[in-house]
Structure formats: structure tokens, C-alpha cells
């Protein structure tokens, strides 16, 4: 039984499936996310897959400014991810709302709606930073699981 648990824990670190949700970004961050999939960065090396279905995903990667229109969509997608899961907010807008922070329709950062584990700074962040963020998110998940026993 404990061997199975070891394998599962190993899998958790080695197979992060990422669902990417764009809360209305300028596409700068999104293009950097896609750049991670290219042969230059090749995130599949780390077992990272860009997956379309939150029900299959382990990591939620959010780009763009959360606004009052799409905050329930964000929440919904988060709720449809089975535990254990992690959230990465990415780019200036995802972190705080960025330059749109004061706009009437903007909620602010992703963490105003759902709990965020890792913040990846930049406008946009470099692909290396994004990959780093995913790895960091996994370590947070691991820590959380260990804390929970």
C-alpha cells in the first residue's frame, strides 16, 4: 500500500497537467505559454501537458485581468478540478490587475476569487519563468499534502 502511495506521490510531481484559463489577457502571456510547448522549451520533458479539461488538470494557470464578467467562470473552472490541485497566477494582470487595476469592471488579481499558490511575475513572464512556476506549484502541493498527512 505504501508503495502505491509512493508511486502516486512520484506521479504527482512528474505529471502536472495544466489547464490554461485566459481571463482577458492581452495575449502576451498566452503566447509565452504556448512558447513553452514548442521544441525550444518542450515542457513535455517534465511531463507537463497542456490539457483542455479542468477535470483532468492538476494545475490551473491563469493569465489576464479578472473582471466581474468572468470571475464566476474562473471560480467554476477551479471548482471542477479534482484535488489535489494548484493555481498559478501569471503576469502583471493576473497578479494584481496590472494597468487595468483601477478600471470600474476589474476585480483585481486572481487571488481575489480563488486561492493562488504561485505568482509568476512579468509582463509577460519568460517561458523559463512559467516552467519554474509550475515546478514550484508542485512543490507547494507536495508540502500541502505532507502537512495534511
Amino acid at each position: 500500500m505504501s508503495m502505491l502511495k509512493d508511486w502516486i506521490n512520484k506521479g504527482r510531481l512528474k505529471s502536472p497537467w495544466v489547464v490554461h484559463f485566459d481571463c482577458g489577457s492581452c495575449n502576451g502571456c498566452d503566447i509565452e505559454v504556448l512558447a513553452c510547448l514548442t521544441p525550444v522549451y518542450d515542457v513535455e520533458r517534465f511531463g507537463i501537458l497542456n490539457i483542455g479539461d479542468p477535470k483532468h488538470a492538476d494545475v490551473l494557470l491563469v493569465t489576464g485581468t479578472v473582471n466581474h464578467r468572468n470571475k464566476h467562470v474562473l471560480k467554476n473552472i477551479y471548482d471542477q478540478m479534482p484535488e489535489p490541485k494548484a493555481v498559478i497566477a501569471m503576469g502583471a494582470c493576473g497578479l494584481t490587475g496590472g494597468v487595468f487595476r483601477e478600471a470600474y469592471n476589474v476585480v483585481g488579481g486572481v487571488d481575489k476569487v480563488i486561492p493562488v499558490d504561485v505568482y509568476v511575475r512579468g509582463c509577460p513572464p519568460k517561458p523559463e519563468a512559467i516552467i519554474d512556476g509550475v515546478v514550484l506549484a508542485l512543490e507547494k502541493v507536495k508540502a500541502k499534502l505532507e502537512a495534511a498527512g
Binding site: F21, P54, H72
Partner: peptide
Amino acid sequence: VGPYLCGAQSPGDDKAFL
């Protein structure tokens, strides 16, 4: 849970988008 509807499902109704 309800079905995956791109996060846009109508609250409390699995058979509709919002």
C-alpha cells in the same frame, strides 16, 4: 458534479450555459 461547460454553466442548472 455537473458537466464541464467551459466554466459558464448556469448555477443550479446542469443543462444550460449562462
